[in-house]
Amino acid sequence: MANPRFPASYVAILSEMLKDYGQPADSVLATVGLSSEYLDQPDASISDQQLRQLLQLASRLSDDPALGLNFGRRLTLTSHGVLGYALMSCNDLISALDLLMKYYRLLMSSAMLTLEEVDDHIVIEHKNLGPDLMNPNFDEEIFSAGIVTAVKQLLHRDSLPMELYFAYPEPAHGDEYRKIFNCSINFDQNRNAIKLPNSLLQEKPEFANPSMLKIYQQQCDKLLARLDDNADLSSSVRRMLVAENSGFPKLEAMAEKFHMSPRTFRRRLQEEGSSFQKISDEVKRQLAEDYLRNSNFSIDTIASLVGFNDISNFRRAFIRWTGESPANFQKKHRP
């Protein structure tokens, strides 16, 4: 099993929110095996399953449809532990964003961020590589509110000249988005992203400190190495497949990368309740959906990019994964 993946400060924030909602935080924590005393420990952390259970409970008890947004905007830089302090120590915003891309797995081990520069702006996009915390829309609310809060704190600004894009229809609590973000909000888009002007990239964080940055980066490197050492095999295989640039390797080739025999590799994944085929299909599906939403590639090209030499095999697999053909999916999810 992988080590806990989230700082306990996230739970402390959620506990405060529960109190605001008039709910007994201690009894809620106890339902997932946590206590206030444990959360007070400097290195306390929790598993993704515990955070998921707490968010589900908080959502039910609070009856707050905007819980994801409100939780995300309370995630201050210091709540992210050493990575938060590293971001505050950067010389400019672009350095902080590059650092966030590199170490984002310390905050969310099953996700990644991408940064794209287009003309006079940058686009920050969040990609989930594993199970959702709650559901895709709720998770995107946490991500977008958390990133916006971080950038505001770094630059000591109350508001940002930005645009937000969400790949889902406007929810019933859409007015909360406009109230919280105070910017242009676009729903039914082809991806979930935050757009910021290039003019912000050279702005200097209030607490920039190059000498402390080196110390914090060293600590982040150690934490990342520990995360990789203790990650379950399924997560490591998933990350390797996502990063693979030369197509999708066969089970035997992947086993060799992990210095295991195919039999041992297969058994280890089975012990974790998974299989190489299952992980490979999950990654192929996610990449295929991303390409169909966000690229101008033909379906033939996308089939090849996700490891299918025969487009008819890709079409059958995609229908099995999603219940619809690639062409129909593309038509529904692209503007």
Rank of each mutant, 00 (worst) to 15 (best):
L227E: 09
S79D: 13
M162W: 01
L129K: 03
Q50C: 06
Q41R: 12
N294I: 13
P161D: 09
N3W: 08
I13M: 08
D300K: 15
Q153V: 07
K331C: 06
E170F: 07
L227V: 01
G84N: 09
S9G: 06
T78I: 12
R5Q: 10
E256Q: 15
G84H: 05
A58V: 05
A44E: 05
K250I: 07
I215V: 13
A12G: 06
S236M: 10
S235V: 13
T322D: 07
F207L: 13
S304D: 08
E289A: 13
D43Y: 14
A30S: 13
Y21F: 14
Q270L: 06
R5N: 14
P197F: 06
E271C: 07
A303C: 01
R74Q: 13
V148S: 09
K204Y: 02
Y216W: 09
Q23P: 00
F308Q: 02
S199D: 12
L164N: 04
G68A: 11
M17C: 11
I194L: 15
Q202A: 08
N309F: 11
K152G: 00
L269T: 03
T149W: 04
N3R: 12
L227F: 04
L83H: 01
P169S: 15
I124H: 01
A111H: 02
P4K: 03
L93W: 00
N313Q: 10
P210F: 03
N328V: 15
H80C: 13
Q270N: 08
D92P: 01
T264Y: 06
P161L: 01
L93C: 02
P205Q: 04
F138C: 02
P24N: 07
F329W: 05
M1W: 01
F6W: 04
A327Y: 11
A30Y: 07
Q23R: 13
V11L: 02
L155H: 05
L115E: 14
S275K: 03
E256R: 12
Y38P: 02
V283C: 08
E206D: 05
N3F: 12
H126S: 05
S325N: 08
L305R: 11
F314S: 03
F143W: 11
E272A: 10
A145M: 00
L107T: 00
L233A: 06
N309Q: 15
F138R: 02
L133K: 00
E163D: 14
D119S: 10
N309Y: 13
Q286N: 10
S211C: 04
R267L: 07
A145C: 09
S89H: 09
P171E: 05
R285G: 12
A243K: 15
L54V: 04
H156W: 11
V283D: 10
R52K: 15
D139V: 05
A255T: 04
M1D: 05
F166K: 10
D290Y: 14
L51D: 07
M112E: 14
N328Y: 09
F308K: 00
N3K: 14
S95V: 06
D63G: 14
M108A: 14
D300G: 12
E203I: 04
E272T: 01
S261F: 06
M254G: 02
S234K: 14
D120S: 12
Y291C: 09
N128W: 03
R268A: 11
P197N: 09
R316T: 11
L223G: 09
L100T: 07
N198Q: 15
K222W: 05
L251Q: 08
